[in-house]
Design a protein around this nucleic acid. Sequence first.
DNA 1: CTGTTAGCGCGTTCAA
DNA 2: TTGAACGCGCTAACAG
Lengths: 354, 354
Amino acid sequence: MRPTVHDIAASAGVSLATVDRVLNARPGVRAVTRAKVEAAIERLGYVRDVAAANLAKGRIYPLVFIIPEGENPFMRGLEAEVRQAMDRVTFDRTSISVVNVPPFDAHALAAAIDAAVAGEVAGIAAVAVDAPEVVDAIDRAHAEGVAFVTLVSDLASSRRDHFCGVDNVAAGRTAGSLMARFLGDREGPVAVLAGSMRVRDHSERLSGFSAVMAEAGCGRHVLDVLEGQDDPVRARALVARCLAEFPGLAGIYSLGAGNAGLVAALEAAGRPGLCVIAHELTPPTRAGLESGIVDAVLHQDAGHEVRSAIRVLRAKADGMKPVAAQERIRIDIFIKENLPPPDPETGTALAGEG
Amino acid sequence: MRPTVHDIAASAGVSLATVDRVLNARPGVRAVTRAKVEAAIERLGYVRDVAAANLAKGRIYPLVFIIPEGENPFMRGLEAEVRQAMDRVTFDRTSISVVNVPPFDAHALAAAIDAAVAGEVAGIAAVAVDAPEVVDAIDRAHAEGVAFVTLVSDLASSRRDHFCGVDNVAAGRTAGSLMARFLGDREGPVAVLAGSMRVRDHSERLSGFSAVMAEAGCGRHVLDVLEGQDDPVRARALVARCLAEFPGLAGIYSLGAGNAGLVAALEAAGRPGLCVIAHELTPPTRAGLESGIVDAVLHQDAGHEVRSAIRVLRAKADGMKPVAAQERIRIDIFIKENLPPPDPETGTALAGEG
DNA sequence: CTGTTAGCGCGTTCAA
DNA sequence: TTGAACGCGCTAACAG
């Protein structure tokens, strides 16, 4: 059997309370006594039973996830993952709630953060918008001792504790590299469809993509960015106009949402041979891959991001280790052939690590 | 606060013991009493605290992972993931041990399975070899009530409870599709380097790859399979000879291990423009991607597989739900641009879900 | 500074 | 068929 607090108390010749004080780094223990206890811990190879500890302390950790509302399928999948995680974390004495805010709205986001802080939560996860008032709100949370992680889109200039998301510059580079390889010698410029340059993930992807396109051995012209606000209707109109305007277009890189509009415009135009790369495996992009309209989809695993955020927030709230640096999220590449079966539960279209 | 057994006992007007009997479906409760309790459970929305339950019952679940020995980097990474998981699952009252067997050795594997069963374990995870005696051993484990999952390589004809690994036919198809796209109009046959056709994962990958190569719109010739036994030295020799024999070779698909030999042979030969696709992100394939010798690497997340195996085995040992069908493992695609930073802990070269 | 004691939510004897 | 009492490993009051 594994050694318990009793064993180490006996072995060190002290009482359980003293052992507990040492374990939890609480004051009121002489250095000599502490050394004895620590020796016993080392000697017996003691590791504390976290479940029992949580059970005993009874404290619960309230976390808040702030997620953009609206019909963006990726965000809806993200929210579904959060709701699914709620059940799984109860044993960890963690309770999660979700708050929705209008997309791209810095003011609303800042207000939501302040409200959560006022609500005495232990930690906050939010999809950041790049604006000074958001930075201020995050810094206020930090000042109040509330753990904070940015989700999907980062805000490195703030005092957030961690970023749960992909390296979006690398994602853009990946898209560029695939586009270049798929196009080969084919001539023509490429278009970029984005949501808004006011979120960091979009602007970072663009910079990575543009960099590859400009590099030696590629040298392909990138047209002006089309900003569709992640709205399918606007995206469709922008893409349709672009297709009409540039008959020689070789490819389209869609780095935001609103992909339902993109796919619709492409279907209507019927332009085989056009290389299309999009982000996030959602119902529209999945359909595009299956029909052959979309060549590749870059993806981030929302479930992984959510679980990572929970772990980091809990650790921070507990004052635990300086956050596991291993929480890096992969940039997934999907083509028609490695498309995973859809997940009926979350709609994220991905089988997920439980 | 969440309702506890006390609450539902009070609400139902019975004692805790009765509530417990109902919760654990034990006999000795009148139908009427049971109904009252179930009504209370429903009414209060009670969910049992698994951590506390495990703490109370004190039972511990011994699991065994049987993994091929030798220098196959993927297998070593897999084992590292298992060892890393050991610490994390102690709170779950699960203890894991690792057993090594010679690779591709059906007899040794069957013996190891029998030994584990004799050792009264709760569950076994093993990398299967395709042989009747292995099927028999798995079926014996099943008969003894020991949960069994195949890991990485399946044996669907046995009575294993679950397979923790990727769809290898789809992985082969993915490789084929990427190869076709990367090659474009370039002429020439492609070679396939495998470990052994006696493990299902290798043979399935080959069939998927060959199918795509034979399909309309591709029609590329696939040379006879080179079987390198996942040994770098043999692999190197085989590839070197093949390169010499076929100057017009367009690509190589390496679907097994031994990739250190493949990369070495390619470096020595210096054949730019050759499209190379390999499996599993390990030190040699990572180096190949970084140097540009390898174009793409298909990967399965060993950490994910291990954690999934543990969850499934635990659930089965507890007689829980008929196994979450959601435990599907993704086929990851890596190119130079989306290469994750190496993980110093496991050597699996992947940031991993903790 | 240190030790005693009473739970946390649940499972499991034993009696009734 | 039912109930009371104890313990799992740990934390947190309170004493000393």
